[in-house]
Design a protein around this nucleic acid. Structure first.
Length: 719
DNA sequence: TCTCCCGATAAC
DNA sequence: TTATCGGGAGAT
């Protein structure tokens, strides 16, 4: 009797055997419904074996082998196994984080093959339409020839509804989809730098990792589009990863416009379950030519993968911060190597890990030195020294003057402050009391409009205390600057100006962010106040001033990655200024104008910054010169968490190539009433660290940690 | 003696 | 993770 070895979505690092008469190797990669304990689960067949792995247990039969989905191909199974091993995560859970949630349900999931649509009688259809219905008439003309769903949707948002209606009326019929690539719309001519980059990418044979470095406006997207066009012409598929959901609709629009008629699948957490599952199936069947998505898209099966692109590769959102803590960028590199295809990592400010790989010759650096739009000027940077200066509620007179200037010229200004709320804390000037979260080791942020104090870490909320709990003083003041306060201040200062604040609080409602972007584009805003929400990827042609407030906090942080992040963030937000032919100006208010980070930014010299930063990391023994992993634990008390970690350290295998540090309280020690601590492990050898972790996790899983929740984070971004 | 809650344990 | 089992504490 053959046995199916299944990966099940349970936190156990092992597979489970079930028997199935006349099963053969073709079952591998299919879903199976089984009874597990007392419940029914859907598992993934990983192996078919002649005998059970464990002779001592009674083996249940498979209830059903589902044949509804494309079989998970060997390369994806290998990829998932790699993730399970590398991140020390149970394979069953890896499988289920990698697949659309819909596939965890027992019901079969069927997707009709993608097809094209064509008018039964194009002339009759056109004749039946009113003269004024221009969209309908346009569609009718298109439908004389077979059109893909993507092509029709690209024509207009309401096109698909019309097509459905005509289909129901029998005006249209479904025809087989042609996989031949329609001619892409020609893009703008490439400048020499872009052309060289495209050539390097498309001419590389087999696996090659290209680090595409170019500031905002240097035309990285155009390089991607050209490289993808070449791949599509060879009948291959492209995988494109972007950091944020916010950015996908924009980019998707650009892709659809450039590749009309090409099936493009968009995969991210904002896509409804069913649509995600359908997109996955289309990609896996080879019907979709382009998969565009956030980190979860990295696991999509692509039988004819020809190119991988990771845009803004330095972005922290490529690293999942819970469950399977994978780095989609690193997994993407693995995938490209596996498929022996080129991968492009694009960024203006590459992660120092990637930069280091380029220095070492493992990645090929492609630089885009020029701005793509001829005549566009790079922004001019200016540091506004604020030490011992009088500031009007945090804004320097020079900054205010610059804003006034834009107002007079009818241009837009952006004040960038990465701190939402009114003020970061409520303060008693009598006794020095600060409002703190009772559940976290964090301050409560002041939200003036609602007159509430909020914890931005756990979501705790309370009303303003009527008097200081420390001394009874009733005169408590918000301390420091937040975006709300800045908004209030600027509205007072410039009563004639239209001020718009963009942060997670003001953009909570669905669609409000899109609406805000529209307002900005329509020129109905004079002064924008924004957090990092606004820093990424959006073009504002009328924006000519970016003023940065409160950046200094990233300079002297305990986190060794803080300056890297600060540089990236400032470079990114500066890119919002002056994208059209109006030169942009960037002002940074700082107490430390002489700081090398700012000096490198002013000189637009990331190479210098990276070299300095890497030298420091080498000296201090930080990544990328070492590989790290963190074992985190949380419990009701710090003592329990620490005790667990001490036990864990005692269980650690001995390896002179691996350093195991003492347990310490986490930097945010208390979070939502749980106390947290961690152990850092590092090694100069990735292989040794991996082997060490495998042994350690095996030993640790054999222990039962009653009240402690723990997890391992390999290549952590934050310690 | 009954019931509820918590911790331990198994899951193929 | 989910589901069940059993022991102990307090209620009836």
């Amino acid at each position: 009797m053959p046995y199916l070895r299944l990966a099940l979505d349970v936190p156990l690092a092992r597979l489970f055997d079930y028997e199935l008469a006349d099963a053969d190797a073709s079952a591998v990669g299919k879903r199976a419904v089984v009874s597990f304990g007392r419940r029914a689960l859907v598992g993934m067949v990983i192996e078919v074996a002649d005998s059970p792995a464990d002779a001592g247990v009674a083996i249940k039969p498979v209830e059903a082998l589902l044949d509804d989905l494309p079989t998970l191909p060997a390369d994806i199974l290998d990829l998932l196994q790699f993730c399970a091993d590398y991140y020390q995560h149970p394979l069953g859970q890896v499988v289920h984080t990698a697949l659309p949630g819909r596939f965890r349900e027992i019901a079969p999931y069927r997707v009709a093959p993608a097809c094209a649509y064509q008018a039964v009688d194009a002339d009759a259809l056109l004749g039946s339409l009113p003269k004024r219905a221009s969209l309908q008439r346009r569609l009718a003309v298109m439908l004389a020839e077979p059109c893909s769903e993507a092509q029709l949707r690209a024509e207009s948002g309401s096109a698909w509804r019309l097509v459905q209606a005509w289909l129901a009326q029998g005006q249209l019929r479904q025809v087989a989809l042609s996989l031949a690539l329609p001619q892409p719309v020609a893009g703008p001519a490439l400048n020499p730098g872009q052309a060289a980059a495209v050539a390097a990418i498309t001419q590389s044979a087999g696996f090659a990792c290209h680090l595409l470095c170019g500031i905002t406006g240097s035309g990285k997207t155009e390089v991607y589009l050209h490289a993808i066009a070449e791949v599509l012409q060879r009948g291959l598929q492209a995988l494109v990863l972007v950091p944020e959901i916010n950015l996908t609709p924009q980019l998707e629009g650009r892709f659809r416009q450039r590749f009309p008629g090409v099936e493009i699948v968009s995969l991210h957490s904002g896509v409804a379950d069913g649509e995600r599952a359908t997109g996955w199936v289309r990609a896996a069947r080879g019907e979709a030519a382009i998969v565009l998505g956030t980190r979860l898209a990295v696991f999509t099966p692509l039988p004819r993968l020809g190119l991988v692109v990771v845009d803004e590769e330095h972005d922290a959102s490529f690293k999942q911060q819970e469950g399977l803590r994978y780095s989609a960028r690193d997994v993407a590199v693995y995938r490209a190597r596996q498929a022996q295809v080129a991968i492009v990592l694009g960024s203006a400010t590459p992660a120092l890990e990637s930069w280091y790989n380029a220095e070492a010759g493992r990645y090929k650096r492609l630089a885009l030195p020029q701005r793509a739009v001829a005549g566009a000027q790079p922004p001019s940077w200016q540091l506004v020294p604020t030490r011992r200066q009088h500031l009007a509620d945090g804004l320097h007179a020079h900054t205010l003057g610059a804003i006034e200037n834009r107002l007079a010229r009818g241009e837009q200004s952006l004040i960038f402050l990465n701190r939402r709320g009114y003020a970061p804390v409520m303060h008693c000037s009598e006794c020095g009391w600060l409002a703190a979260c009772t559940r976290c080791s964090a301050r409560l942020t002041v939200h003036m409009r609602e007159r509430r104090l909020r914890c931005h870490h756990c979501g705790w909320e309370e009303r303003f205390p009527p008097a200081c709990p420390g001394c009874g003083n009733s005169d408590m003041k918000p301390l420091g600057q937040g975006t709300q306060r800045l908004e209030e201040l600027l509205a007072q200062r410039f009563p004639q100006a239209r001020v718009l604040r963009i942060d997670r609080d003001s953009m909570r409602r669905k669609g409000s962010f899109e609406a805000a972007l529209k307002t900005i584009h329509a020129g109905e805003v004079d002064i924008l106040i924004g957090t990092q929400m606004l820093a990424k990827g959006h073009d504002f042609p009328a924006l000519t001033l970016v003023a940065v407030i409160g950046a200094d906090s990233g300079l002297y942080s305990a986190d060794f990655r803080a300056s890297e992040r600060l540089y990236a963030q400032l470079a990114q937000v500066a890119g919002r200024a002056g994208r059209a032919n109006k030169p942009g100006e960037v002002l940074i208010q700082t107490d430390f104008p002489e700081h090398p980070l700012y000096q490198a930014l002013l000189a637009d010299n990331y190479a210098d910054f990276a070299a300095t930063e890497l030298a420091e990391r080498k000296l201090a023994g930080f990544p990328p010169y070492l590989y790290q992993a963190v074992l985190r634990a949380e419990a009701d008390t710090l003592a329990e968490a620490m005790q667990f970690l001490q036990g864990a350290v005692a269980l650690a295998p001995l390896d002179e190539a691996v350093t195991v540090w003492d347990p310490v309280a986490a930097s945010m020690m208390r979070l939502a009433n749980r106390e947290r601590a961690q152990v850092l492990v590092q090694s100069g050898s990735r292989a040794r660290l991996g082997a060490f972790l495998a042994g350690w996790m095996q030993a640790l899983r054999a222990e039962r940690a009653a009240k402690v929740r723990w997890s391992l984070d390999v290549d952590p971004l934050e310690l």
